[in-house]
Nucleic acid binder design. Structure first.
Lengths: 335, 335
DNA sequence: ACAATTAAGGTAAACGTTTAACTTAAATGT
DNA sequence: ACATTTAAGTTAAACGTTTACCTTAATTGT
């Protein structure tokens, strides 16, 4: 049988208001003996406040929602961990939702999170959405966007890596290594990051006064399997290329696999650069040259931003751009 | 301004009870025109029920807690996805917590989940805990254990892979390949799965009437980095071995890396078998021979079990053992 | 010495649902 | 024709907190 604030009040011979005040540290007007007595009884009876009742009146749940495409994509565990760590520091919990970049699921996630009255939402996805969410009409739940762009009323901030410059550095590295036919195995064009990386790709070419070829830019997906498939397809088509700049590490790793199966040597015949610097990129053979994003930090800072907004410490729109870093390993080679 | 059930009732000119009944499909005694009218108004005014208020009276939150050591460990994203998918099918949400196998954090997680009044908990960890949770005194939240053993009052079921037999198959494979000095790079002994895998290791030796050496069994951790470090250390010590049976794929992958850095050929000089079959195990070089666990399925079925318990469909203790599968790839070789 | 302030705590409404118990009118059985 | 059942609702309490406002006694200021 659960013990409530009323039980505590009765046993301590005070009112529930008094108990509530000591629970919430609004106890300037509570005497020391009373406070101690209440705390002792609370501990003794193992009192656990009922969050539902509390939320009902305070309109706060101390819960935030995390919307991601798929936790199995190696980018997201790192992000999720950053989110959870920062959330926990401020006694927030995290409800997470996978959308598979599906609009219907996204909508459902948002609905669920609103019903659960989360205090805020961290939203990452690379989806096609352009419009408003249906359920957002009467709602004011603040949203922090991670690594994507979207125009919604509720957006209080945005945090992302400098995808354009990262891609620029990566492609520049390939060019200066001496690679000539550099394909861009892009993620979906609907994704904001893809487009930014594409800009970086083009910028690098421009800077070296090389004309890039439209057909060298190939749109794909971030789903596992695509990197492998596309290389197999290109090889069947006898497409000529000597370097790959990949939308993420997963694509890069799968591509390398596909190349090696056909006896093509990385980095000697084909150089490969990835994006993200996932943990495994150091363990494949050859180790992967890639653009490191501060993924954990992105999650951490997104929640930081959200909490500051919730506490009213900040109410202007915030936009954080984090630096990327070129990690040169063995999948590229100075020719 | 949020629209409540009272607003809907007022507009539809019925009582809140009537509205509540149609919301919860307890509407046998509601006429069709009334029902439709209410539904229409709910949609029109974008009514979203307040879960806190509902939970307060029903004592249910439609939320489950997921406790794991670290989402960054490649085992857990797969599991988490299984959990979320099954949970969503029944309109449940998932709150997740990382414990880093730390007792204090575990305790804190449990506290938070109880306060949030989750309907049930999926608990995975490989920790040292033996006793009860402090906060569990007055509580009856059902727990399903995944891949671990623990003696708590609230445990309604357990689901795990057949670790012992999996390990047995893996070691047997190494033995029949002709490898002689097979080290076991184990996870922590405090983990239930480690001990089961150790039993499998011993069983295989016994079956082939080989005496295993105590010093070949090495206790480690599942933290990233250990697999690499231990191999470096063994090589410095000039330890003799020609095969590794690893506590998980991460250890195996790191070990292979460390071996290759020292010019040792896998599988020719040293054969390696992992455990889990994480996605990346197909992409490293050589591809990793490993014991596949049905990870997604474990998460999925754990929630299934939990929900059935919550619905009262089942109230006996359940114990599911899932089969593992030996995936022979290129890190082992028939000599 | 008396008004004003402060310390310590109490009262009761409010938050938004659900649900057991009740009501009323119509339909049905015999 | 009357009792019984059913259909279609309504009423109001309950869930466990928080909090604005109140009360009382003690302290302080002048």
């Amino acid at each position: 049988m659960k013990v409530t604030i009323k039980d505590i009040a009765r046993i301590a011979e005070v009112s529930t208001a008094t108990v509530s005040k000591v629970i919430n540290h609004k106890d300037e007007h509570i005497s020391d003996p009373t406070r101690k007595k209440i705390l002792k009884i609370m501990k003794e009876y193992n009192y656990i406040p009922n969050t539902a009742a509390r939320s009902l009146v305070t309109k706060k749940t101390n819960t935030i929602g995390l919307i991601i495409p798929d936790i199995r994509n190696p980018f997201f565990p790192e992000l999720a961990r950053g989110v959870e760590d920062r959330a926990n520091e401020s006694e927030y919990n995290v409800i997470f939702c996978n959308t598979d970049d599906d609009e219907e699921k996204e909508e459902k996630c948002v609905s669920m999170l609103i019903e659960k009255m989360v205090d805020g939402i961290i939203f990452t996805a690379s989806s096609k959405r352009t419009g408003e969410f249906r359920r957002f009409k009467n709602n004011k739940i603040p949203i922090i966007l991670v690594d994507r762009d979207l125009d919604l009323k509720h957006i209080k901030g945005r945090i992302k890596a400098d995808n354009r410059n990262g891609a620029y550095e990566g492609v520049k590295h390939l060019i200066t290594c001496g690679y000539k036919d550099i394909l861009f195995l892009s993620g979906p064009y609907t994704s904001y990051t893809s487009m930014e990386r594409l800009k970086g790709y083009k910028k690098a070419f421009k800077e070296y006064s090389i004309k890039y070829k439209e057909e060298n830019i190939i749109e794909g997906t971030y789903q596992s399997g695509w990197g492998y498939e596309i290389i197999k397809k290109l090889l069947r088509q006898k497409r000529k290329f000597d370097a790959l700049f990949c939308g993420n590490d997963l694509i890069a790793i799968e591509a390398i696999k596909a190349l090696q199966e056909d006896g093509i040597k990385v980095p000697h015949e084909v150089g490969v650069v990835g994006f993200d610097d996932i943990y495994m990129s150091r363990f494949i053979d050859p180790t992967l040259t890639t653009i490191k994003q501060p993924i954990y930090e992105m999650g951490y800072k997104a929640v930081q931003m959200l909490i500051e907004t919730l506490q009213g410490k900040v109410n202007s729109y915030q936009n954080i751009l984090l630096d990327t870093q070129l990690m040169i390993r063995n999948s590229t080679l100075k020719k």
